[in-house]
């Protein structure tokens, strides 16, 4: 058996979620090859070579791979997956975009958003927005898996020195091109990697009031998230959404402010170690999952919280 893993990165640094995907690969138990596809991403390959558990790093460095376009990266993965028993990527918007395309090219189904490895072809995954956990067995010749990062403890980022091999194949579709992007710039930790997350819901009332949460977050070194209601209302951008259809987080501490606790939000954060809810409605469902609930007006409680940190 051998496992090909697609590295998640921004051409400068390897994203921590990749360390969790490697952990899943180790649970399968086979040699791990990490593919870094990007443009001017040599530094990422250097970091990838240090990750514990990686036997070999493949570096495909070409403009065609700069933006992780599914059409190009899937062809590269198809080529490199020859002879592999498993192909893995993180269940991020990048992995979810690319990997089903690889599965179809290989003529196999994909198992999405894997939470646990039971055997090399038997996995657990959440269905129905996390309301049920399915155990599935795949009869496919190659296992193509996207991995839920928060479900696996990351391997060590340093301590290894795997070989780096260059891949010269360039696949470039003429039918798609990158136009532009608007990426959120923030000095705060990334939502899915933060050990503390402070999230706001519709109770905040508007986008300006999220400033209160940013102040608390900065004192705690936390990331700031939001419920779907807050995103849909236009308070904050989509990349802050925590939930079934947004980001899945499992920090040490999750502080939900003015969030009622809709099922789809709970699906995105209920694996957090400690959950705090601040809401003025004591009947809000969020209190049913909170370790510490505070029934209070958030406009009084949040500034007080900030002051006491």
């Amino acid at each position: 058996m051998s496992i090909l893993v697609l590295a998640e990165h921004d051409n400068q640094s390897l994203k921590p979620v990749t360390l969790s995907v490697i952990a899943a690969a180790k649970a399968i138990g086979a040699d791990v090859t990490l593919l870094v596809a990007g443009h001017q991403c040599g530094e990422v390959a250097e970091q990838a070579a240090q990750v514990v558990g990686v036997q070999k790093v493949l570096l495909a460095d070409a403009p065609a791979y700069a933006h992780q376009l599914a059409e190009n990266v899937s062809q590269l993965l198809l080529e490199q997956a020859q002879g592999c028993s498993h192909v893995l990527a993180a269940a991020t918007t990048t992995g979810k975009n690319v990997l089903p395309r690889v599965a179809a090219l290989l003529g196999v189904n994909q198992v999405s958003d894997v939470l646990a490895i039971e055997a090399p072809n038997r996995f657990k995954r959440a269905i129905y927005a996390g309301n049920a956990i399915a155990q599935v067995e795949s009869d496919e010749s190659v296992q193509v898996l996207t991995i839920r990062g928060t479900a696996f403890d990351p391997v060590a980022a340093t301590g290894n020195s795997a070989t780096i091999e260059r891949v010269d194949s360039v696949f470039e579709s003429a039918d798609v091109s990158f136009s532009h992007e608007a990426l959120a710039k923030s000095d705060r930790p990334e939502l899915t990697a933060a050990s503390i997350v402070v999230s706001g819901g519709r109770g905040l009332g508007n986008g300006e009031n999220f400033d209160m949460l940013y102040k608390v977050a900065d004192k705690l070194g936390a990331a700031v998230g939001a419920s779907r209601a807050a995103v849909d209302a236009g308070y904050v951008p989509n990349d802050m959404q925590v939930g079934q259809t947004g980001k899945l987080v499992a920090p040490e501490l999750y502080i939900a402010v003015g969030i009622s606790g809709a099922i789809q939000h709970l699906a995105g954060m209920k694996d957090s170690k400690v959950i705090v809810a601040i809401n003025k409605d004591e009947e809000a469902p969020i209190f049913q999952v909170a370790d510490y609930g505070l029934v209070a007006d958030l406009f009084e409680a949040v500034p007080e919280l900030e002051a006491s940190l």
Binding site: D175, F178, A182, L183, A184, T192, N238, D239
Partner: peptide, 13 residues
């Protein structure tokens, strides 16, 4: 497209 870091725009044929 809604991607993890924000928004990305692609041009397709």
């Amino acid at each position: 497209r809604e991607v993890d870091g924000g928004l990305q725009t692609l041009k397709l044929t």
